[in-house]
Structures are given as C-alpha cells and as structure tokens.
C-alpha cells in the first residue's frame, strides 16, 4: 500500500469546556515510528485515542487504510483494535491476575490460536525482549522495566500494523527507559509495525523516525519563511 496508513484530519475534541484537540492533523506512514511530543495537557493522549478509534472526535476525521474509523460500528472498531492494533501504556497494560507468559499469549488466544501454540510464541517474544526469566511471574512481582518489556511483547505478538504507546517509559528511570525504547523500536521495525509514540521526553522521542509537536491541541507548524 502506498500513502499513509493512518490519517488524522483536522480533529477537534472538547471535554466539557476543555478543548483537548483544536484542529490536530497528522499522518502515519506504513512502518513509520512517529513520536507525538508536547507538554503535559497538550492533547497527546487524546490524539492517540482518536487515532486508535477509542475516542471519536467532535469534528474532523480519522482514516485507517483509506476508510473512516468513525463510520464503523463499535463492534467493527473493537475487532480492528484486536486484529490490527497493539497498545502499550505507562501503567496497566497487563492483566494483573495472569503470568507474564499468559499475558503475552492472550492476544493470540483472543484471535483463536490454541493455548499451547500461543504460549510457545509468547515465550520466544519474552526471550527476544530479554525477560524470559519472568515468564511465570505476575505483573506485581516484576520490576517496572520487566513489566514494560512484557507489555511490549504483548503489544507486538499479534504482528499489529500499528502499535500505540502512551508514555511507555514514563514510569522508568532514564537508563531503563532507553533500553526498553531500544528493544521496542527495534522489534517493531523488524516486523514492519508502525508505532505512534506519545511522550513528553525528547530523548525518548529521538527513538522515532519523525517527531511532531503538539501545543494547545494542535501541531506546531514549520516556519513560514523557511
């Protein structure tokens, strides 16, 4: 496919009196790692949720592979999130009652894979991210860095076209954060998944292929005279 994989076109969204998005437009190319940078409250998470079809904008449209997201039924949108998208959040990406292995295997089982086959693949993803040793542990028994590596494995295992990551290293110290980013972006690039990465840290954004900056609900423009 040529052209962008995902497009946000002039999105507006208000929460009551708060204008979270005020004309945000952005495109994500296939296989591209794109960082959404900006200060806290600038609308990064809201834009990510709109791009992923979790929130519907008041105005403007989101197009995934050429067709509008907001035209689809809730059912179709959650199928899309299950089949085509992966998610990593700052906290709570994992099911607390399940082991790391079961957490990573879950997306494959939800799309119909047998448990044994799913767990075999999950194990190789845990290895790839350097956390095979926590396979039998629950999220509460892992360090922050281990938990985020498991969350990355879980987001990538289904071979999603797009991974949405909201401050994935926000709870980690800077060295651990960098190691997770290194492994996350390398694995995503290897399998050709696009990544939409929300962060307020420029050193984290530097792992992307491109950065755009949000301020007050819209993207900053390139200089008019340049």
């Amino acid at each position: 496919m040529t052209g962008p994989l995902l497009v946000a076109d002039d999105l507006h969204l208000a929460f009551g009196p708060t204008r979270a998005l005020a004309g945000a437009s952005v495109e994500v190319a296939p296989g591209e790692v794109l960082a959404l940078l900006g200060p806290s409250g600038s609308g990064k998470s809201t834009l990510l949720h709109c791009l992923a079809g979790i929130l519907t904008p008041d105005r403007g449209e989101v197009r995934y592979r050429g067709t509008r997201l907001d035209d689809r039924s809730d059912e179709a949108r959650s199928r899309l999130r299950r089949n085509d998208f992966g998610f990593v959040f700052q906290f709570g990406s994992l099911v607390p009652e399940l082991t790391a292995l079961a957490n990573v295997a879950l997306p494959l089982q939800l799309t119909g894979a047998r448990r044994r086959a799913a767990e075999e693949q999950a194990r190789s993803w845990l290895e790839r991210l350097g956390v095979a040793d926590v396979a039998g542990k629950r999220p509460g028994e892992m360090s922050g860095g281990q938990g985020q590596r498991v969350a990355v494995a879980r987001a990538l295992i289904g071979g999603p076209r797009v991974v949405f990551a909201d401050e994935p290293t926000g709870a980690l110290d800077s060295l651990n954060g960098e190691l997770v980013m290194e492994e996350f972006t390398a694995a995503a690039r290897d399998q050709g998944s696009s990544v939409v990465l929300v962060t307020h840290e420029t050193r984290v954004a530097a792992y992307a292929d491109r950065s755009v900056v949000l301020r007050d609900g819209r993207l900053t423009a390139a200089p008019a005279w340049a």
Binding site: A205, A222, A224
Partner: peptide, 26 residues
C-alpha cells in the same frame, strides 16, 4: 515577527540531531 516559529525551527533541528545520535547508539 512570529517568535514561536524560531523556537519551532530550533526544536526541529535539535530533534533531528538527537535522532541521528540515538540511531548511532544502536
């Protein structure tokens, strides 16, 4: 003149250098 654009252009330039350095660390 729009001073914001000066800051935006500087930020883009810095971010570009940071991406290059981060790629080199791989």
């Amino acid at each position: 003149r729009p001073a914001e654009q000066i800051l935006d252009a500087q930020r883009d330039a810095h971010l570009g250098v940071m991406r290059g350095l981060t790629a080199r660390k791989r």
